[in-house]
Write a protein that binds this DNA or RNA. Structure first.
Lengths: 204, 204
DNA sequence: CGTTAGTTTGAGGCAGATCAACTTTGGTGG
DNA sequence: CCACCAAAGTTGATCTGCCTCAAACTAACG
């Protein structure tokens, strides 16, 4: 879901360039406003004490970032990291609250998005037990490639998104290639028919 | 989070009695309004084709129900079932939209709740990989007993909530009793010191 | 006090994580 | 433009948490 021209509503905001790999905010810190992404891709990651990493959500151009914690009135529950070089603007609390007063429909728009994200998160949670690792990996590559076709997702990113390991992702991708479901090209790959692949999930 | 006296705002709504075990709405059907729970406990469950069940969320007196799908503008992604005898009112779309116009703060209240639920869902999803089954079971009983202390949760319900099996729940509860962390009483049990138990999760 | 839904306990199996050693890719700096 | 090298990917072997299956037990409700 994308907010077109959201940034033109905040003309005073100065766009900030973020280098690939750098952190926008850290788990545990306190929101003081929200971010709007003008370009680039950002990943939201949860890191546990035993070193396991979970790739919770992806955000692209036109998305808000940090809005969940802001509206839940909580500390950030995960860390956001730029997957690519990114450009974003930060909208401080006061300014954003003013905006909401003037445009109450923004609230409903965000609620719609968060409600949809909650459904997706819960289905992903279910999938951790009722689907095989291969099935989850397939769902993940279809989702990631559908939303960000030009991005070369690493095996590690796919593993963290699907709840698996990069070795297992490697093995599954090889099998998919052997079956003619994807075509590999260097580190990248192309899914031939995403819809048909999703239908075959239970076979893997 | 609880909406006090939300039902008095809809005096025309007729309370409906729901028997333990019966379905309020089914996965895949279309929301035509939202529910408000006057008394009782309701569980939201996702059932997969291979028979696995996931216990997604619990709702009690003073909670809304069916609001996620309503605001996401989606079909229900899971089935809601009365865990106890329950009394609720249904608020049709038109009436609810009218209410939101008159009381826009309701929208922010619901957004706050859904945003918080999303955070919890994502942390539970992470926990499926970075915590042992025992750890997740402990978190689940602490959560369920904290919010619904009088409810006798079955091993199956705890298993579906934690992403495990009822046999594993049995084994963990026995170990917890042996270690003096809980006291069993028939099918029910009491957690001695929930906070201290949560701190010991990584030991289990 | 009979019935059944819920619980306990044990034994065995396997999906997929982990560990390890090697190969390939693609960015970069000379 | 090419050589280098760190990051990413591959492949195989091993290990294990906990799920599955099975069978006997027990609480709780009508």
């Amino acid at each position: 879901m994308i907010l077109d021209n959201f940034d033109t509503l905040f003309p005073t905001a100065r766009p900030k360039k973020i280098r690939k790999g750098s952190v926008i905010y850290n788990e545990g810190s306190k929101p003081s406003g929200i971010y709007y992404i003008q370009s680039g891709i950002i990943g939201l990651h949860h890191l546990s004490e035993n070193g396991k990493e979970t790739f919770l959500r992806v955000f692209g151009a036109g998305n808000l970032l940090g809005h969940r914690s802001y509206f839940a009135d909580e500390l950030y529950h995960a860390t956001s990291i730029a997957i690519n070089d990114t450009q974003l603007i930060f909208i401080p609390k006061e300014e954003f609250e003013q905006h909401i007063k003037e445009r109450p429909e923004t609230l409903r728009f965000i609620l719609n998005q968060i409600a949809s994200d909650l459904g997706r998160a819960e289905l992903r949670m279910s999938g951790r037990h009722d689907k095989s690792a291969a099935g989850r990996i397939i769902e993940s590559i279809v989702f990631l490639k559908l939303h960000y076709p030009k991005q070369t997702w690493t095996r590690k990113q796919i593993a963290d998104y699907s709840g698996s390991t990069f070795e297992t992702v490697t093995r599954v991708l090889n099998k998919l290639e052997k079956n003619g479901d994807i075509i590999k090209n260097g580190r990248d790959f192309k899914i031939i028919t995403p819809d048909r692949l999703l239908e075959k999930i239970r076979e893997y």
